[in-house]
Write a protein that binds this DNA or RNA. Structure first.
Lengths: 138, 138
DNA sequence: GTATGTGCAAAGACTTTGCTTTGGA
DNA sequence: TCCAAAGCAAAGTCTTTGCACATAC
């Protein structure tokens, strides 16, 4: 049984066919799909799924902290399944030429960030870091 | 004469009364106002200024790199005047309880970021870093 | 004088919501 | 059974745009 599905059940959500499809789509998405993209992929499995349901489901998942919402400087929201452990916290490098999103992670960076917030008298709830750039040509 | 106004003139923009007001508002804004807020502030000086003009002006300024667009996880864009020098690059800590935006800067952090991007084979064009958190209660 | 800029209202893009019907527990 | 959830379409919110008029250069 999928992890997402399990957690949704724990949260008391009814497991409808639509939700099962959407959860599966999210878990199988290695990228950071938009609502539209999630809906398209879900429709391939069950064409009757409506965009409203996708919005509502993603909203619920985000509220439960199972999914993270990004925007990457664009005009619409994009989502990814949230990793289980905090130390897996990663960030994004967006290739401005191809639109590709590359994930990266650095413990050193995380430590640094926490030190900065602490210095300002703040406790971090969340943080996002995005680099926009392009490949260095050799 | 204001710096922003000077640069707009250099760029060949016509200096209409509306633009002068909007530029002044931006330069006097220590915060990170939304389009709506900029428009409100501008209207106090000249009530005839329309939101469409504010959008168009901010769009132009962003294109010229004189202004930076943020979203801070919200639903609408927020702006600030871009600092002259790159080494003044700063980031934002958003207080999730008050909505207040605190700016911070760290050369060490910048150096670290560049090292990471380099390691991935990328040249940084821009980067944004946002911390969401709340004050530590003593 | 002429290309740009402005205001207004309409159109767009993305997201949310009300209402009725459907379906999981 | 009964309340949560889905589908549809309407409404909302933020942003952009077409058009006629105004204005900086």
């Amino acid at each position: 049984m999928s992890k997402l599905l399990l957690k949704c059940a724990e949260a008391g959500l009814k497991m409808t066919d639509q939700r099962k499809v959407i959860l599966k789509v999210l878990e199988e998405s290695g990228d950071h799909p938009s609502v539209d993209t999630v809906c398209d992929r879900a429709k391939r499995v069950d064409p009757s799924i409506s965009i409203a349901t996708v919005y509502r489901t993603l909203g619920l998942l985000a509220e439960l902290g199972l999914v993270v919402k990004h925007d990457f400087g664009g005009t619409y929201a994009r989502f990814e399944v949230k990793e289980e452990h905090d130390h897996e916290h990663h960030h994004h490098l967006i290739d401005t030429e191809t639109g590709q999103v590359i994930e990266f992670q650095s413990d050193e960076l995380e430590a640094h960030i926490h030190k900065i917030a602490e210095g300002l008298g703040y406790k971090i709830i969340d943080h996002t870091f995005e680099i926009f750039g392009h490949k260095i040509k050799k």
